[in-house]
Design a protein around this nucleic acid. Structure first.
Lengths: 341, 341
DNA sequence: ATTGATAACGAAATCGTTTTCGAAATAACC
DNA sequence: GGTTATTTCGAAAACGATTTCGTTATCAAT
């Protein structure tokens, strides 16, 4: 019933625990004969090393922690998949936690993972996170930490990101190139770096094209989650306040689809009356009518890259070598579809 | 630098490790004075018990494993969220693995989780899984195992499900009630129990309404993943083979949306020419045009219920009590929208 | 003064594995 | 035969927390 231990194997074979352990790990100072005996018995008894004991000795758990703002999210669930797939290849398991965009929760979860003694942490910041001491604590304890997508520039650690500013610039430029004269921006929440960078890209594109930048065309969301409803509301507001707007660059596809739905309902033609560019390339965007022009954000690749970087850092720490922090920027692409001319 | 241990606290206070341990756990045989001293020092040194050592002693990891066929999936990511939220409340962490609908992988992952010595396992079966010895092994070792959504009736363990047959019956009945005379069914893969039950519900509804059941109207998918593309293909095939069909009950929303898209593209009017009912109530279904009538499948609740049941079983095992297996059936509802008359 | 009860503390075993450092046994050499 | 290498093994000390079972000290009661 109870799991088999080295001791039991040793007793059956009338040899020491030491030899059994060494035999199973192919130490050179065990004779081929006893090795064979041990391995055979281990197999028939279905011996599995006790991870708890191994962890205690090696001080490793072969486990990493992952904190993301939301799980039910096309982009993030792709990131999860990327991380889990890559981690499994290297023999690591992934503990997942959802911060729910809350700084307080995020802090607690970092604590949880640290006391669980995971070998490393991957995190995409909550929108509410403006204080980074909990992250710096992790780094100060020599625990590898890699941030992805929603990062804090100020924290000294590796980061996997896209060039939000450039992508937003591309999106806005595409609106301009297809004839839009007055372009609004739904920027979502204020805090996260993505939001800031996408806004800056939008603004820069306008200025570079000698177009007037009008702050009243930038719609900010006070709420924590960028949602479908928000898109509808913003669209309604826009139709009231700025009838002359003929293009919108929207922070994220879900909001864009909300806006699109509202325009469809109100008989506003997309792209004839208003062009829309979203961000992320959710699956849904290729299915909605009209299909949504958007920026493709590589979630799966980001997950893979994040784990790979973390893996390097965990190896470095194990060898007592200094960590070489990297900022990896993944490519994005403009996906032209029906919502722009 | 290195984490603080009981020993260090003991040395600083010139007392024994035993007393420190007891003080922190509020044993009655430690004086209030030393308790206060220990607790204070523990706090200032930021003492965190070494989980590895605790695990080794208590034989618990306070960790559970979760195996699902796909992560990037509206329903399953909702399940994940339900599980993670509930587990966190009870102090459990969740290790997530994706079986990719592969039996081989699923088997390996069960092994992985067992050697990781998680306290329990939650699983939704891969489509390819027809042999259940890996699951029975888990149960034989007294490790709590709860299956959800994609289950195997034959395995003796708790199950959290919906009544697929009833839901499918409701969906088909709705098509009949709204005037459909010839109703097709896209049933997806052959193996999984859901698929079978939904098909049976469809068939029973036809027969109960004295409608002819025609096997050629049931479209099966040989592939492992139910996808958008499959919906398109099936729709094309249907238009070729059976022009008289005026209603379809489709196994899952994603496929339904594929079909819908194909019909839209070919100028087939939904619901005027063909009515469609999907399954799952993905977010997308409320956004597509026309919006999709579907069966609401409570992913978040299923995740919560699954963990709650697992929690009960883990408690039982800890107390050496027998496990009381339960089959919990969650309610579904028909969500009427534009794709049916 | 003796007994008994109670309070406060610690030594040591335990969980199962890993690894260092010797020791024994065998083989190899002059 | 005696010395040195080379295999092959095992004792024991970790890893850090928990818990059993004593031991001492204190004090009240007889």
């Amino acid at each position: 019933m109870k799991p088999v231990t080295l001791k039991q194997i040793a007793e059956q074979l009338k040899i020491s625990v030491t030899t059994v352990s060494k035999a199973l790990k192919d130490y050179p100072d065990v004779s081929p004969k006893t090795k064979a005996l041990v391995k055979e018995l281990a197999k028939t008894l279905n011996y599995k090393p006790n991870t708890f004991a191994v962890n205690l000795r090696t001080k490793e758990s072969k486990t990493i922690g992952l904190i993301i703002p939301v799980i039910v999210h096309h982009f993030f669930s792709n990131v999860i998949r990327g991380i889990v797939s890559q981690a499994e290849k290297k023999g690591y398991l992934v503990i997942i936690l959802q911060s729910n965009e809350s700084y307080e929760l995020e802090k607690k979860q970092i604590d949880l993972l640290m006391s669980q003694r995971v070998d490393g942490i991957l995190i995409s910041l909550a929108n509410g996170t403006a204080n980074f001491s909990h992250l710096n604590d992790v780094i100060a304890q020599d625990k590898p930490l890699v941030m992805f997508d929603k990062i804090a520039k100020i924290v000294k650690c590796s980061k996997i990101i896209i060039d939000d500013r450039k992508a937003a610039y591309m999106a806005t430029q595409h609106l301009i190139d297809t004839g839009c004269k007055r372009i609004a921006h739904f920027r979502g929440a204020l805090l996260p770096q993505n939001s800031i960078d996408r806004f800056l890209g939008y603004k820069k594109a306008l200025i570079d094209n000698n177009m007037h930048y009008d702050p009243s065309l930038v719609y900010i969301c006070e709420c924590d989650d960028m949602s479908f409803e928000e898109g509808k509301k913003n669209a309604q507001q826009l139709l009231k306040d700025h009838k002359d707007v003929d293009g919108i660059f929207i922070n994220t596809d879900l909001v864009a689809i909300g806006a699109l739905t509202e325009f469809n309902a109100q008989g506003v033609k997309v792209p004839e009356d208003i062009s829309i560019v979203g961000f992320s390339n959710w699956f849904m965007s290729s299915v909605i009518s009209p299909t949504l022009t958007t920026i493709d954000q590589p979630g799966f690749e980001m997950g893979k890259a994040a784990f790979k970087q973390l893996y390097k850092e965990m190896k470095a720490v194990k060898k007592n070598k200094p960590i070489d922090y990297k900022e990896i920027v993944l490519e994005t692409a403009l996906v032209k579809r029906e919502s722009t001319r």
